[in-house]
Write a protein that binds this DNA or RNA. Structure first.
Lengths: 188, 188
DNA sequence: CAATACTCTTGAAGTAGTTCAAGAAATCAC
DNA sequence: GTGATTTCTTGAACTACTTCAAGAGTATTG
């Protein structure tokens, strides 16, 4: 399971064992909060089963989804993890969820023991950064309709596993408007 | 100059020298393109003087700014740099510009010679990722007016050094609308 | 220092997406 | 399996932001 992931960088068998040793399996029920904004959460989570949404709550109490995660994805509140500050984002299980969790201290321990792990995590962060930058570019370039169509085209499992309401929030529009888009698309 | 930057991670004097050795100073005139979309650009650039904008061109030929960079900032097309593919983004000097450029091969060389550099770059990428994620969150939560006010409040040098047109493009609105916002703010 | 080219502003008309309210359909809890 | 909650749809009125066009102000160039 994890070794599949570790194809990202070059590890020896021994190193993989060292890395895996520091992970801890955790389970959550659908709707449970894995990370709660306002609390320190110094873990990173690797999803083995289920899916999550990351969201932030604005001053009006409205929720805005910033990310979805499925099997083989990492998630975590990076600022809280890195600086030991309060998390800005919530992460909630959208299905029953199994994760491999790793604490900051174990993460640092691995980084010291296994140099390839630093490189691995550097690649993770870099890819995350590229993803986020592309997401911003799409937001600037595309209408909500184009963003919706591209999302379900590129990532069909989002449509199957994520509610319209959550997709709308991720795209930055209202659920009502997605409904209008669906009707429009169906008429073609 | 660079040693100021290298306060980010822990380096010995010798390591700093090794790192600096692989950089190359380059100068650009105002309006020059440092990176051109569609071409491979396997460099990262550290700004010592001047500022740049990163932008992408959509199917209608419209430009959308995804980033600004000032002194002591890194920029580069991360995908092109990492995978040796064609750049998606353009980077243009908005003032006469001096950068320290480092090629992918030198970057990798340093990574092998100086372990602290891997950690340094991991921190860079992580911070960039956090920044981009927060930017997305702001886009989802705030109106254009709120984004404009927060930008000039948090980053006054943007207002001083970047044209309204480029600020508008960064915020994802038209220059005309920013003009309306300014008028509105002045009336208060 | 004149010519040209950008930058910023203003206004009027248009549109993408929102809000609110209410009903139908699906899912969840006991 | 029935009642309660949540999800999705529909419609009508609204608003944040755009588009187009034109003019004034400010840089840039030869």
């Amino acid at each position: 399971m994890k070794s599949h992931l570790l194809a990202y960088s070059h590890f020896t068998e021994e190193e993989i064992a060292k890395v895996l040793y520091h992970f801890e399996e955790k389970k959550f029920k659908k709707r449970d909060l894995v990370i709660e904004a306002g609390h320190v959460d110094s873990y990173q989570y690797f999803i083995t089963q289920g899916c999550v949404r990351g969201y932030i709550v604005d001053y009006n109490g409205k929720e805005h989804n910033i990310a979805f995660g499925f099997e083989e994805f990492w998630f975590g509140d990076m600022e809280s993890f890195t600086n030991n500050t309060k998390a800005h984002y919530n992460y909630q299980a959208l299905e029953d969820l199994t994760v491999l969790a790793i604490s900051k201290s174990n993460w640092d321990k691995i980084s010291n023991e296994v140099p390839a792990f630093i490189e691995y995590s550097r690649n993770l962060f870099r890819n995350a950064m590229i993803f986020q930058q592309n997401r911003i570019a799409k937001h600037l370039m595309q209408t909500a309709e184009q963003r919706y169509e591209q999302l379900i085209y590129e990532n069909p499992k989002v449509l199957q596993r994520i509610s319209l309401k959550n997709i709308a929030s991720y795209l930055g529009v209202t659920p009502e408007f997605i409904s209008i888009l669906r009707k429009k698309a169906a008429q073609k």
